[in-house]
Design a protein around this nucleic acid. Structure first.
Length: 879
RNA sequence: GGGCUCGUAGCUCAGUUGGUUAGAGCGCUACGUUGACAUCGUAGAGGUCACAGGUUCGAAUCCUGUCGGGCCCACCA
């Protein structure tokens, strides 16, 4: 039953219904798509949002881009899969819940105990997860919910455990002692990238260990000097060269130290005294020096940030207290030479901002350098670098390939154990000195599981294949099921800020598990800043809630505003005004459709959208433009130029279809088939960008779903190329003429009510039909009384406009004097342009070097200008 | 210290291997709007493409340098 559409589009009334319709259809799941057996797969695994909080507008941008890619491919006949999921975000989540129970119950996690605390975390996780999934659906995301995953669900736990065991057996995972970033408050290690640097003013103390020690050193942390085992100097430093290799016994504030003088290029000659006390246990760089020089390691500070036993009066003190005491003692002994303020960067925990204490500790590591048989004798690092170098994985924009490689080359072994409770517990069991690695404890009593959990990136690093059924779908090196059909995936789309954190890990994990890349293209989007160009953050309160914006403007408008006017890898600013303008466009499209459907009888609704009906001039023009635009849009989408694709479509839809063709269609008859044809194609082309409104309009005249229609990548251009060009030229002339008439009318300040008359002289080779001229000009200018005469007839009225081969005379309200002035000015302009153009053409280099078609264009342009000039000169003489 | 990035209209941004007169949206000005759309239409104003050199017949685009914004990494003993 034919129904008139509402005057304005109301997103909030339709979006939920449309989404339900999509879900019910089952087409989010590629298994339900009606496709030939050999249809190529197109897979994107959604970067799982952290379940620490609800989604922000940045997530919306991610969803908009990925859904665009997915919908475009689905329409293009791919076996399209987009897998949803969420990330347990171990440390971050535990931190949020710890804060929550401290606030609500006044308890710490230790008060609750591991089991009760984890129950609290899971409660929180389930609530947030529901919110996130709801928000994701509101954006219109065509995710296959039947494959929903969580980085810590049962399936993923199995996969993670298996990965750990495999890596342990290949000795990629090992247990070792290392300097780690230790947060004394969180009681956990932090990865290097979880450490933040805070600028501060620190005291730099310059002193001697004892009176009989020859070298003066500087430090900001005198308390750690209790564990010094060497003094390092730069080998180039003349001042200290003679000491290198010597051993000294000193008494430093009551502590006996054995100090060796070593040479190391890491020592900066300029800083302090150019000599550095080496404390292997409490500085990463000192640890390296200690390894290189086989120095003993003395631990001074414990996990609680207190001085350990065995350091006399200092034992049990906080590090800062010990520092004061030592400084006082040095001063008392006259050893302290200088005390000055310096700027330095304090390493702090990214969560609680507690100062990091570098400590040696037994942790689990993944070796990135171990050569592996399964990788043809190459290491994970080498394979990961090779993938980028050989362009097996390409980056968009390309510059991130360099960042990735730089980072990868400097990568050290990855510490994967964390001293927190929420996460994948390490599948290692201890009984005294015995150690067992496996899913379950071995038989026998007394086995205790390692209390630590895995770094959250361990499980998210496996995301492309743990979501596709690994390890069950991988036996004896052969993939099966989803893994065979969808891995490697096509695109990994995410923010550039986790290029190193996540992407690098996924690549290494995939090589280890499957020997292949996880994805072939990495598309990186920028950050959405607030309207002042500042990062959005909870503490600043400048975040934008996607649901609120969707409620106000509709999901389509939000999507389009995030997709347009932005380029990969570059940050963009969010503004309501932009969303509003996109909402206006959505409404425009709605009204275009409303007009077409109301002007079309129901029996035409079935018109095929794959073949174009036979056209008149204006029809040919719009069809050529549709075909050309479809081609350009497709190219832009293939090249990830979403913004340009949308701009092209916008230009076609608004400026060509609505502004010109629909106006023609109001006069010319029998356009129903062609209108439906165009509308269907326009809706398909727009669907990946604005799925809701397009599907809603489509449902008014189609029984099937738009989301599985056929992309017009090769719609026939009925006219030959040269004919298309001619059509375009003719139509352009009409457009120019119309605009000229409007201008003339405006300049002559003629009241529209006067219903101007005009006489238009046709040029013999303009190739336009009088009737076509009449229709369009009449319509677009409001000139009701229009007369078109053959050239040669004389008329003594003032000329208003000259366009191409056409002269327009307005029969009323023309001031001859004014007109002459105007024409003289135009003449002057033309002469200027002509002289410029001739100069250009007479330039031998231009003709010799510029492409032929540009030279030809310049020539014809010049000819056109000259013709027009002649005409104007003639008219001026007549005035 | 190393690296990346940006500087184009009042604002937010496009501009894809250098090529006719540099674009869009918003804002602004003027005019208009009786049946697709005021979430609208028509027209207009507004740009030394940060600056200075260079390469080229030709530069917003490539090179060098300067200034200014942003980001990342490392180090800060």
């Amino acid at each position: 039953m034919k129904q008139e559409l509402d005057k304005t589009y109301n997103p909030s009334e339709t979006e939920d219904n449309i989404y339900q319709k999509w879900e019910k259809s089952g087409f989010f799941n590629p298994d339900n798509l009606d496709l030939p057996k050999n249809a190529p797969a197109y897979t994107i695994i959604l970067p799982p949002p952290n379940i620490t909080a609800k989604l922000h507008i940045g997530h919306s941008a991610m969803l908009a881009i990925e859904d665009l890619l997915i919908r475009y491919r689905r329409l293009s006949g791919y076996r399209t899969l987009w897998v949803p999921g969420t990330d347990h975000a171990a440390i971050a989540t535990q931190g949020v819940v710890e804060k929550k129970i401290l606030k609500e119950q006044g308890k710490t996690r230790h008060d609750l105990g591991r089991e009760a605390f984890l129950a609290e975390v899971w409660k929180f996780v389930n609530e947030t997860q529901a919110t996130i999934l709801h928000q994701t659906k509101k954006m219109g995301s065509s995710l296959d919910w039947s494959r929903l995953a969580f980085t810590l669900d049962e399936t993923r736990q199995k996969a993670v455990t298996r990965m750990f065991i495999d890596m342990y057996q290949e000795e990629v995972i090992y247990r070792g002692e290392r300097i780690v970033n230790w947060c004394p408050r969180c009681h956990s290690t932090l990865a290097d990238d979880e450490v933040e640097h805070k600028e501060q003013v620190a005291k730099l103390y310059t002193f001697k260990y004892s009176l009989d020690f020859p070298i003066v050193i500087s430090t900001t942390r005198p308390e750690t000097k209790l564990g010094d085992t060497a003094v390092a100097v730069n080998p180039k430093d003349e001042r200290y060269r003679r000491y290198i290799g010597k051993q000294y016994k000193v008494n430093f504030c009551g502590q006996e130290l054995n100090l060796k003088i070593i040479a190391d290029y890491n020592v900066d000659l300029e800083f302090g005294t150019g000599a550095l006390g080496v404390t292997p246990a409490h500085s990463a760089i000192d640890w390296q020096m200690a390894q290189a020089n086989s120095l003993p390691i003395i631990k001074v500070i414990n996990e609680a940030g207190l001085i350990r036993d065995g350091f006399g009066v200092y034992s049990g003190l906080k590090a800062v207290e010990a520092r004061d005491l030592i400084v006082a003692k040095l001063r008392e002994q006259g050893l302290l030479e200088k005390e000055e303020d310096i700027n330095n960067n304090l390493s702090v925990c990214y969560r609680c901002e507690t100062a990091i204490e570098p400590l040696p500790s037994r942790q689990w590591f993944i070796s990135v350098d171990k050569k592996l048989e399964r990788l043809g004798g190459k290491s994970l690092k080498e394979k990961a670098l090779e993938a980028a170098a050989k362009k097996e994985i390409t980056f968009i924009p390309e510059r991130f390939s360099k960042s990735y490689c730089d980072w990868m080359e400097n990568l050290h072994d990855w510490c994967i154990s964390r001293q927190i409770w929420f996460g994948h517990q390490i599948p290692v069991w201890y009984k005294g000195e015995e150690i067992f690695v496996g899913q379950e404890a071995p038989s026998g009593t007394g086995w205790i599981q390692d209390p630590d959990t895995l770094d959250t990136w361990f499980s998210s690093g496996m995301w492309t294949f743990s979501t596709l059924g690994w390890p069950d779908n991988f036996k004896d090196g052969v993939k099966s099921g989803d893994l065979a059909r969808f891995h490697p995936t096509q695109v990994l789309e995410t923010g550039y800020e986790i290029l190193t954190l996540w992407i690098s890990r996924m690549i290494m994990m995939s090589f280890f598990a499957l020997g292949e890349i996880p994805f072939s293209t990495v598309y990186l989007h920028g950050i959405i800043l607030d309207k002042n160009g500042k990062k959005m953050s909870k503490s600043k309160g400048n975040g934008v809630d996607p649901l609120e914006v969707i409620n106000q403007y509709g999901a389509d408008a939000v999507r389009l505003s995030l997709l347009m006017g932005s380029t990969p890898g570059n940050d963009t600013r969010y503004s309501d005004a932009k969303v509003e303008s996109k909402r206006n466009f959505v409404n425009k499209l709605w009204n275009i459709s409303r007009f077409i459907l109301s002007a079309t009888a129901e029996k035409f609704y079935a018109t095929a959208y794959r073949t174009a009906p036979a056209p008149t001039l204006a029809d040919k023009w719009i069809l050529n433009n549709l075909a050309a635009s479809a081609k350009i849009v497709t190219e832009h989408l293939e090249n990830f130029n979403f913004s340009l694709a949308a701009e092209e479509l916008n230009e076609f839809t608004w400026n060509k279809l609505a502004d010109w063709y629909l106006e023609v269609a109001k006069i010319e008859k029998n356009k129903e088939e062609i209108l439906i044809y165009i509308l269907k194609n326009v809706l398909i082309l727009w669907h990946p960008f604005i799925p809701f409104v397009t599907e809603e309009i489509w449902s008014n005249f189609n029984a099937d779903l738009l989301m599985v229609a056929q992309w017009p990548q090769d719609i026939a251009v009925k006219t030959a190329t040269n004919e298309a060009a001619m059509v375009e030229k003719k139509f352009q002339k009409i457009q120019e003429l119309v605009i000229a008439i409007r201008n003339a009318r405006g300049e002559n300040k003629v009241e529209p009510a006067k219903k101007l008359e005009a006489v238009i002289y046709g040029h013999e080779d303009s190739g336009l039909l009088k009737e076509q001229m009449e229709i369009i000009i009449n319509l677009k200018t409001g000139l009701k009384s229009l007369e078109i005469r053959e050239k040669g007839d004389k008329i003594d009225k003032a000329i208003a406009a000259v366009v191409g081969g056409w002269e327009v005379y307005l029969l009323g309200g023309v001031d001859k004097k004014k007109e002459k002035e105007r024409l003289l000015k135009e003449k002057e302009n033309l002469e200027k342009i002509i002289s410029l153009q001739s100069a250009k053409l007479s330039n031998a280099d231009f003709v010799g070097h510029a492409p032929e078609e540009i030279v030809a264009a310049a020539k014809s342009k010049l000819a056109a200008y000259q013709a027009e000039l002649e005409k104007i000169v003639k008219i001026i003489q007549g005035l």
